[in-house]
Computed example of a mutant assay.
Amino acid sequence: MSARERSGWEELTANDPNHSSWYVDRFRTLAADGTDIVGEARLVDAMLARGSHVLDAGCGPGRIGGYLHEAGHTVVGVDIDPVLIDAAREDYPGPTWQVGDLAELSLEQREFDAIVSAGNVVTFLAPSTRETVLANFASHLATDGRAIVGFGANRGYEFADFLRDAEKAGLTPDALFSTWDLRPFREGADFLVAVLSKSDHDSASVR
């Protein structure tokens, strides 16, 4: 059996064991300084009814899932890095935080109203697992659920390739933006926020 391909984040932290702690401290400092670190969460919250179920996929130290919990949603956060999960549990009690590989995602909660993957998470995925991760998103979405994925350009995952992988995985774009504050996506944009729904739901809705 071949060894599992390590994700970009695993490679990064293997090369710099202090990186995860630095990342946690960075967001704690930004929050303490009054910097807005939850713009992504506000967008997701605006799309949801109160009390929705949300999966924070690649949750990091919990800033997005923590906000959504405080807004009244039931949140599960998953990240491959145990240092980041420990920080999420400490800073944002309430959601269910767990260490896990998005390429092997199989949660007891199978129908989330929203799955959010921010912070360039998809660009850290091992290339061989990208389509598998997106298929896992599709399998964990409720019929009317949406996945919201945001990442920057020039990070090793072309926007066109991502959208092609999403289609193969059973996710259809409902809307594309170039920022988390909903500026329209245009050719040459340096960021993509994709709002995706399950392809079978789209096809069923037009029958």
Rank of each mutant, 00 (worst) to 15 (best):
R164A: 11
A166M: 09
L55C: 07
G51N: 09
L182S: 00
I85R: 02
L43R: 09
E104F: 10
T96L: 12
F137T: 10
F124V: 13
A114Q: 03
S20P: 13
E108A: 11
K198T: 15
R89M: 01
P184G: 02
D79C: 01
D165M: 05
R186C: 06
D181N: 05
H53P: 12
D200M: 08
P95G: 03
E131V: 11
R28A: 14
T35C: 10
A160M: 02
D56R: 05
D113T: 04
V76M: 04
N154G: 01
E104W: 12
G58L: 07
S197C: 13
I80D: 08
V206R: 07
M1P: 12
D33T: 13
I85D: 09
A166E: 11
F191E: 02
R89C: 00
A135L: 12
Y157C: 04
V206W: 08
L176A: 00
V149P: 02
G150A: 06
G39H: 00
T35I: 14
V83D: 13
G60E: 03
R130V: 10
P95M: 06
G100D: 14
D45Y: 06
D202T: 13
F124R: 12
G65M: 11
R28K: 15
L125E: 03
S21W: 14
L12G: 06
S199C: 07
P61W: 02
L192M: 02
W97F: 01
I64V: 15
R186A: 12
V206M: 06
L12D: 09
G77N: 04
L12N: 08
G51Y: 07
Y157N: 03
Y92F: 14
V99M: 06
D56C: 07
D33Y: 12
I80V: 15
H140F: 05
N18H: 14
Q109A: 10
G100A: 14
S20L: 11
W9R: 11
A189C: 01
A160K: 05
G150W: 03
S197K: 06
T96W: 05
D45R: 09
G65K: 08
L141W: 08
L43I: 05
S7M: 09
R28D: 15
F159H: 04
I37G: 06
L171A: 09
E40Q: 11
A41G: 09
I80W: 08
S106Y: 11
G100F: 10
T35N: 10
H140V: 05
I148M: 02
Q109Y: 10
P184L: 03
L141G: 05
A103R: 15
S205T: 03
D91G: 04
L68S: 04
F185T: 00
G145N: 01
V76T: 12
E11Y: 10
